[in-house]
Nucleic acid binder design. Sequence first.
DNA 1: ACACCCATTGACCGAATCGGTCAATGGGTG
DNA 2: CACCCATTGACCGATTCGGTCAATGGGTGT
Lengths: 203, 203
Amino acid sequence: MESFHNLPEMKRDAVLNAAFSCFARSGYKKTSMADIAEKAGISKASLFHYFGSKQDLYLYLFDFSVNAVNLAVAEGMGEQSDDFFVRIQQAMHIKVTVLSRYAGMTDFLAARYTEDAPELRDLLERHNEGGTRDALREFFIGIDLSKFKPEVPVAMAINAVIWISEGYVRAGPAHVDADKVTQEISQYLEMLRRAFYKEEFLP
Amino acid sequence: MESFHNLPEMKRDAVLNAAFSCFARSGYKKTSMADIAEKAGISKASLFHYFGSKQDLYLYLFDFSVNAVNLAVAEGMGEQSDDFFVRIQQAMHIKVTVLSRYAGMTDFLAARYTEDAPELRDLLERHNEGGTRDALREFFIGIDLSKFKPEVPVAMAINAVIWISEGYVRAGPAHVDADKVTQEISQYLEMLRRAFYKEEFLP
DNA sequence: ACACCCATTGACCGAATCGGTCAATGGGTG
DNA sequence: CACCCATTGACCGATTCGGTCAATGGGTGT
């Protein structure tokens, strides 16, 4: 495991991204170590040399992802605004920043909810109890919902904004520059803000 | 193959849906006939009795899906309106109707673009040449774009509407009643219409 | 009651692939 | 030159793969 950390950064990211995308697309059981090794451009034996076993690799990826997301959230979420749109733009910026380096990581984390391999049950359930809480519910506390026009259904508007943000990220294969992508998303959010907010809250 | 058509309708749909979801989630190569048989509640030998081989099963599913979609489109798309929102609502109604019976079919059809199994290349490429054309481009001919407010970017608004529709379908596990789902989607579309259209085009 | 039919399936086949191991290799370092 | 250690092709037993087949059993006509 320490041998993996001594790898040059580029090679390390290649291995991580190969593993992320394979596990995310095919799940734990259907992903073979040969698949990951081939996509990463290394030998299968090296994979076992780095991580010991398939299960240990998955566990490492999981911890790595949780830490990376927590770190990105900690340094990306500045002063908590009461404005829905600035807060969701912060969240999308974090997601895009993480995704620009580890393209398959969020899909990997999302896919853990559909994992049914018994060898992972303990680890995943343990993390569900302690860490995750209800992130979505927590995201919306302190938001000033009175900025929305009275005639727009707030719950639907919120769903709309979330689905558009996700739709953009999903559709966008041009993940070259995280800042540029963030800027383009903000254009969509600005359009929605104009459509949903009372005029007194628009610049 | 004729033995499969003589099956009772419920059992037939169970087999089709099992195969759709397995192929859509795991791809052609990673999906085993045992997976499909188990999810369908029949024996693996029966699967081979019906379809002969794994490849023949995939081919049958593909033809079946293309025919089903074409049929649904033919009978679901009434007089072509020049209004963007009524047209997209027609399209979503078709999609939801198909999905209510064959939950995994659209994902199965979408997944064919990422299939790299050499045994399927011929079939998939052949269908790409002849049938598909640019469905999205064709969808938008004759649409009256002047109904949009001058300050809203039309291209972005269109993407927004599409992503919201897809997001709703993806998020909604309550696929019990197709008409109810269609009605809920129309509420979202109505909200967006109010936000994006000039007032003179609102009721 | 019997004979016939055919859908269904558990058991089985050789081949491929699985997770995992190991000895040989080769480039870097003192 | 000797040592070290990352890397890997070849290999292991076990499992799973696509596909086959004979046995079974519930229907149907007579």
